[in-house]
Simulated scan of single mutants.
Amino acid sequence: MGEIRLVGTAHVSQNSVDEVRRAIEEFEPDVVAIELDQGRYAALKKEGPKATVDDILKGGNFSEILVQWMLAYIQKKIGMDVGVEPGAEMMAAMEEAEGRNIPIALADRDIRLTLSRFWKGMSLWEKMKLIGALAGTVAGRGGDEEIDVEALTKDKDLIEAAIEEFHNFSPRGAKALIDERDAYLSHSLLRLAQHNEKVLGVVGAGHVKGITGYFNDPSKLPPFASLVEQPKTLPWKYIFGGLFIAMFAFLMILIGFSGVGIDVLIWAIVYWVLINGILAGGFTLIAGGHPLSAVTAFGVSWMTSLNPLLAAGWFAAITEAKVRKPKTSDLQKIVEAENFTEMRKVPLFRVVLVAALANVGSTIGTFAYFIFIFPILGIDPTVVLADGFNNLMAFLGSLI
């Protein structure tokens, strides 16, 4: 087994750039393993195929895309503040290794799989907290306190405190972004050490403690296969969708059999359309969507809320894309945006934001309907539901 040396870096630190170059010069490794996957490596090298507008819109994972863009924006903003481009230390490792004819190994897990496990693994509450925190940061809230990036790479206690805070904030999210990748990187480095005498691992400072722990006791490493499979979770979207369909249908049946009158039943259906539509359309406008997109969200929300295979945001996004006509070049504009206001002006960002928020509005509308429908109709739910149930049972009994 060869020797493995780790360099813990910050992705926007000049000190990290210098330390990486110095470590390669002094250690003279047989291979330099960097915390990148093939996609991020190609992006840094500005090589390989780029995502297209169709790829993004057909994927349908609009909330995940927004979170990814906001995380990239925050990292870029920190890099601008300290005068270092994000990923500069990885570029330095690649340049230094290539200049010395040292092979480069990509040691990290595919970012698409990591983000998928990250998003799908989090609870609804964790997702809401994360989006709120990211939105506040992107919008410029959260104070003017500067982050000392260089101190983060030197102070182990500060790094551990930051990681612990992330675990407290989002335990499941931290598992996918930190813990699982500690294990994945450890597997990669240990495999390289089986065939090389000297392996230099260039990884984020937050991974050093976890990787070192696995090096000290490899028996604790989870099986590699468990780190690369798609997360197995219950299809909550379809479970809740089916539940709401059943609840809505049962509610309409009980109102119909309660004897309050056909007009009340009709208004109950009308309010289903209005509450879902107004909130879906309203959130579309909040996202900066075109009025036609808001009308689309309004028109389909009542139906998509009853079908877990559809989403109001998809239809609103199609209309928004027809109006805004996003281009592949918009991806670069999103990356280069200086603030959230500039990001919102980019057609592709606007389309994705409309899709995500229209879905949020439609979901809120569904919950709001079941909470407020009886006060809106001005009827006593206990009486209506009890009478409707009893009359329904009597009707069914008469059929037997």
Rank of each mutant, 00 (worst) to 15 (best):
I159S: 12
P308I: 11
F372P: 02
K45Q: 12
K327A: 13
E165S: 08
L192S: 01
N101C: 04
A386K: 14
S188P: 00
L6M: 10
L396I: 15
T363V: 08
W125I: 03
T341D: 11
G8E: 08
L66C: 05
A316N: 06
M128Y: 15
R21K: 13
K129H: 14
A93C: 11
R117W: 07
S123Y: 09
V351S: 07
G365N: 02
V228H: 01
D179V: 06
E197N: 12
L6V: 07
A176G: 09
I278W: 00
V31T: 05
E64M: 11
R181F: 04
T363A: 13
E197A: 10
V20N: 07
K220A: 13
L71C: 12
L113V: 02
R21T: 07
S398G: 15
I4A: 06
P381T: 06
A311S: 12
H167E: 14
N276L: 08
T114K: 05
V203F: 15
I262R: 01
K50S: 15
E165R: 09
S293L: 08
M393N: 10
S170P: 02
V199W: 11
L71S: 10
L306H: 05
L200H: 00
N101W: 00
K209N: 10
D380V: 01
F395A: 14
V270S: 05
S63I: 05
A105R: 13
F340T: 02
G388Q: 07
I318Q: 15
H207L: 06
E19T: 08
F349A: 06
I178E: 03
V12T: 15
A297M: 02
A268E: 05
T366I: 01
V67E: 13
A133M: 11
W119C: 00
N307T: 05
I131G: 04
E145K: 10
I163F: 12
I255K: 00
A297T: 00
V17A: 10
A280E: 00
A312H: 02
L6A: 09
Y41N: 05
I275S: 03
D18V: 15
A174H: 13
L385D: 03
Q14L: 14
S13M: 05
D54F: 12
V354W: 03
G173I: 01
S219C: 03
G282D: 11
Q68H: 08
R141K: 14
G99Y: 06
A162P: 04
L392C: 06
N276S: 14
F166I: 09
L292G: 13
T212E: 15
S301R: 03
A355I: 04
L221H: 04
A312C: 13
L177K: 01
V354A: 04
G299P: 02
